[in-house]
Simulated assay, not measured.
Amino acid sequence: MKIDLSGKSALVTGSTEGIGFAIAKGLQEAGARIVINGRTPAKVDVALSRLGGSARGRAIDLGTPDGVRELIAKEPSFDIVVNNLGIFQPSDFFDTTDEVWERHWQVNVMSGVRLARAYLPGMAARGWGRMIFLGSESAFNIPVEMVHYGVSKTADVALARGLAKRMAGTGVTVNSILPGPTLSEGVAEMLKADVASGKTLEQAGVDFVKAHRPTSIIRRPASVEEVANMAVYIASPLASATTGAALRVDGGVIDSLI
């Protein structure tokens, strides 16, 4: 199996580090022309230096309507859009303010809504395109420590399914990917107290999975590359019969057959 994305252009949002960066790297290695995205020029520049090649960067906050409009004006067309941008913030439901809920909704959901509205018509006109949303196993296993995050990820999965149906027959596929616990920089930050106590990051990750995601079958966090591999495949012509799907890279955390 050879994935060839030569001649395809791809946007990966929130891609200066973590899963997003790994997806951008995988797409570039498959031949795509990449635009990475982050909120600050400094982080975008560092990511571009790591990525190399002909990748370009856009330092824009896509969690706002103005930010999305700015990106569209500068980048009017893509063949592949990976809506990876997302935030998470552990907070008990009764302590979580409207502002926290709204920020998660704008960043995790509405950024993808706006980008899909902008880029899907062009994909359909060309008869080919890939729109991918990074959901989460939390879309199905709503985490008690951040209900607001789980709700936003459920919305992403529903959005991808609805858009797939809307794009029926156009040659454009729309899917969501459901990572489980993954050793990204964000998760490393969440586990820093455990690491400071003497554990390795890997052991802290294993302990987190055992304590908080006991249904995991692999019993460890995934690597960012393991999640990125699914995204690269779904972005490719080889996945032309897969659309409207919620594809798990969760290590078996979601304890259901379908």
Results as ranks from 00 to 15, higher is better:
Gly162Thr: 09
Asp156Cys: 15
Gly198Ile: 05
Gln106Met: 14
Arg161Gln: 15
Gln203Tyr: 04
Val174Trp: 05
Ala155Phe: 01
Phe93Asp: 04
Ser91Tyr: 03
Thr215Lys: 14
Ala155His: 07
Phe133Met: 13
Ala118Lys: 01
Val107Gln: 01
Ala118Gly: 14
His212Ile: 07
Glu189His: 06
Pro143Val: 11
Ser136His: 08
Val157Arg: 01
Thr215Tyr: 02
Val206Arg: 15
Arg114Phe: 09
Arg130His: 13
Leu191Ala: 08
Val147Ala: 13
Lys210Phe: 08
Arg130Val: 02
Thr96Met: 10
Asn175Tyr: 00
Ala160Leu: 13
Leu178Thr: 03
Glu137Val: 03
Leu120Gln: 07
Val172Cys: 07
Ala168Val: 11
Ala188Asn: 08
Met110Pro: 00
Glu99Val: 09
Asp207Trp: 00
Ser136Asp: 06
Pro90Val: 02
Ala204Val: 09
Ala116Ile: 10
Pro143Phe: 06
Pro121Arg: 03
Ala211His: 08
Arg220Asp: 08
Thr215Gly: 06
Gly122Glu: 06
Pro221His: 02
Arg103Trp: 06
Trp128Val: 06
Trp101Met: 07
Met110Cys: 02
Pro214Arg: 09
Asp98Leu: 15
Glu202Arg: 10
Gly162Phe: 03
Leu134Trp: 01
Val109Gly: 00
Ala160Asn: 08
Ala125Asp: 13
Leu134His: 03
Thr182Gly: 06
Trp105Met: 11
Phe133Gln: 03
Ala188Met: 14
Val109Asn: 00
Ser197Met: 12
Leu191Phe: 09
Leu134Asp: 02
Ile217Ala: 12
Thr200Gln: 07
Met123Leu: 08
Pro90Gln: 03
Glu189Phe: 00
Val224Gly: 01
Glu225Met: 08
Lys165Trp: 12
Ile217His: 11
Gly135Met: 04
Val157Gly: 02
Arg114Pro: 10
Tyr119Met: 04
Lys199Asn: 12
Met167Pro: 01
Ala125His: 04
Arg114Asn: 08
Trp105His: 11
Arg213Gly: 01
Gly150Trp: 02
Ile132Thr: 06
Leu183Ile: 14
Lys165Phe: 13
Arg166Ala: 15
Ser216Ile: 04
Asn175Thr: 12
Gly122Lys: 10
Gln106Ile: 03
Arg114Thr: 09
Gly112Gln: 05
Ser152Arg: 03
Val147Lys: 01
